[in-house]
């Protein structure tokens, strides 16, 4: 009787497990498809706003061109003029950015190009993320390994009934205190 119930429970839990995995897989799949669709749906048209948010204004305001609040800013007017012209010429975003770099130098870009020494700016956060993950995994595994050896020592001293009674006692006392 008991064992058959156990078997049934095991079967149930196995099927539950399977349905759980299916759920997880469906979820991940949906997420991937949604991501792909979102990517595909992103329009490739270049706008002035889009480009001007990626270049720095050179008037000393320390913001990107679209955020420079000085209405009479000459640098802003000049850069926006160039971008508008380039868009009219049918250039895409990377080409416009290249054009701007040729005219004003790398410092105009709001983020450094991912090459040469500046590649470090982009790579290191990723490296840090990866290193951190490795560290976390190593730590977790070390904790785990210790438990397997500690588990035996956990069980070797048979727990004294008197001590267990004292534990229960203390616990009840604490419960009544903090209720």
């Amino acid at each position: 009787m008991l064992s058959s119930r156990n078997v049934r429970r095991a079967v149930q839990s196995a099927s539950r497990k399977r349905s759980g995995w299916a759920l997880l897989a469906a979820f991940t799949g949906g997420l991937l498809i949604a991501t792909a669709c979102a990517r595909a749906a992103a329009q490739p048209k270049v706008t002035l706003e889009q480009v001007s948010s990626k270049v720095y204004c050179l008037c000393g305001c320390a913001t990107t061109v679209d955020r420079c609040s000085d209405l009479h800013c000459k640098a802003k007017a000049e850069i926006e003029g160039i971008i508008t012209q380039d868009i009219a010429k049918g250039m895409d975003e990377p080409a416009i950015l290249r054009d701007l770099v040729n005219r004003f130098g790398v410092r105009i870009l709001a983020a450094p190009p991912a090459k040469g020494f500046d590649l470090l700016a982009w790579v290191l956060p990723g490296v840090a993320l990866a290193l951190g993950l490795t560290l976390v995994v190593v730590v977790v595994r070390r904790w785990r390994r210790k438990v397997s050896s500690a588990a035996e020592s956990d069980r070797t001293p048979p727990v004294d009934d008197k001590i267990l009674a004292a534990v229960e006692d203390e616990m009840k006392k604490m419960d009544s205190l903090t209720r």
Partner: peptide
């Protein structure tokens, strides 16, 4: 300090 050139690291980054 390393490259002696001025770059900016801003919102896109």
């Amino acid at each position: 300090a390393v490259e002696h050139k001025t770059i900016t690291v801003g919102p896109p980054f």
